[in-house]
Measured scan of single mutants.
Amino acid sequence: ENVVSAPMPGKVLRVLVRVGDRVRVGQGLLVLEAMKMENEIPSPRDGVVKRILVKEGEIVDTGQPLIELG
């Protein structure tokens, strides 16, 4: 699984990683606000951040690609 998608609609509050960062399974990639709750979106696997597909403040839909892992 190379693309991390939004599990719910919401607003991207914070991106916690940068392109080139090594991440571990379960590590927070970004914080999504949904229904006034902050939800940290975890990495599904170990890898390297290849691309960040959203910006802070952006509104996303369920299933929208957020981050690509390499």
Rank of each mutant, 00 (worst) to 15 (best):
L32K: 05
P65G: 11
R45V: 14
N2T: 06
D61P: 14
M37C: 01
G63A: 03
E56G: 02
A34E: 14
I59W: 10
L29E: 00
G63L: 09
G47L: 10
A6P: 02
R24W: 09
V17M: 12
Q64F: 07
E68Y: 04
M37N: 05
T62D: 10
M37Y: 07
A6H: 13
D46I: 04
D21I: 04
P9D: 07
G20F: 02
M8P: 00
P9R: 08
P7V: 08
A34Y: 04
K11H: 10
G47R: 04
V19T: 12
L53R: 09
E40C: 00
K36Y: 11
E56V: 04
G20W: 01
G70E: 13
Q27L: 06
Q64V: 05
V3L: 13
L29P: 00
A6T: 14
S43H: 07
K11Q: 08
R51P: 03
P44T: 10
E58S: 14
L66R: 00
V3P: 07
G57W: 08
G63Y: 13
D21Q: 02
V23R: 09
E1Y: 01
A34R: 12
V23A: 04
L32A: 11
E58F: 06
G20S: 07
E33H: 04
G63F: 15
R51E: 12
P42G: 07
V31T: 10
E38Q: 04
R22A: 08
D21H: 02
P9Q: 06
R45I: 05
V54N: 05
G57C: 01
V4A: 12
E33L: 15
D46S: 04
P9K: 05
P7Q: 13
I67W: 11
G26W: 09
K36N: 14
N39E: 02
E58L: 07
E38R: 09
K55G: 07
D61F: 05
R51A: 09
V3K: 12
K11F: 10
V4H: 15
K50S: 07
A34C: 00
V25H: 10
V25E: 11
Q64M: 07
G70V: 03
M37T: 11
E40A: 14
L66S: 11
G10D: 07
M8V: 09
P44I: 06
V23P: 15
N2A: 09
V23M: 12
L53P: 12
V48M: 05
G26Q: 02
Q27C: 01
P42W: 14
E58Q: 08
E40R: 01
L32C: 00
E38N: 14
K11I: 10
V19Y: 06
G47M: 15
L66M: 08
S43P: 01
N2L: 15
M8K: 07
E38L: 09
D21R: 01
Q64C: 00
V12L: 06
V49I: 11
V60M: 15
N39I: 09
V23Q: 06
P7M: 07
V25S: 14
L53Q: 12
G57T: 15
V54E: 12
V15C: 01
L66I: 15
E58K: 13
Q27R: 04
L30R: 00
G57P: 04
A6W: 07
P65A: 05
E40T: 06
S5W: 11
K55M: 13
R45T: 02
V31L: 12
V48L: 08
L13I: 13
P42C: 01
Q64R: 14
I41R: 13
L30W: 09
P65M: 15
D61R: 05
R45N: 12
S43E: 00
R51C: 01
L13N: 13
V4T: 12
V12M: 14
R18G: 11
V60W: 06
T62L: 07
V17F: 03
R51V: 12
G47Y: 08
K36W: 10
N2G: 08
V19P: 09
L53M: 15
S43M: 11
E56T: 07
R14A: 14
V48S: 11
L53E: 15
M8Q: 12
R45K: 06
G70R: 05
E68R: 01
L29F: 08
M35I: 03
M37H: 15
E58V: 14
D21L: 05
E33S: 07
V25Y: 07
E40S: 14
V31K: 09
V23D: 00
V3G: 02
V15S: 10
A34V: 07
D21E: 07
E33K: 13
I52K: 05
I41H: 14
I41F: 13
G47C: 01
V4K: 03
V17C: 01
V31N: 14
E38C: 01
V48I: 10
V15A: 13
R22Q: 15
V4W: 10
V54K: 06
S43Y: 02
V60R: 04
M37A: 10
G10Y: 04
L16Y: 15
R51M: 15
M8W: 13
I52H: 09
L69E: 06
S5A: 04
D46A: 06
L16D: 15
Q27V: 09
V25R: 14
L69I: 07
E68W: 04
L69K: 02
V60D: 00
E40N: 06
V49C: 00
L29D: 00
L32N: 03
L29C: 00
D46E: 13
K11Y: 13
V12R: 00
K11V: 04
R18F: 15
D61S: 05
V54S: 07
Q64W: 10
N39Y: 12
E56N: 04
G28D: 11
S5T: 13
L32R: 01
V48N: 07
D61E: 14
V49T: 03
L30S: 11
P7R: 06
R22I: 06
P42D: 09
R14N: 03
S5D: 04
E1K: 01
R22C: 01
E33G: 07
G10L: 11
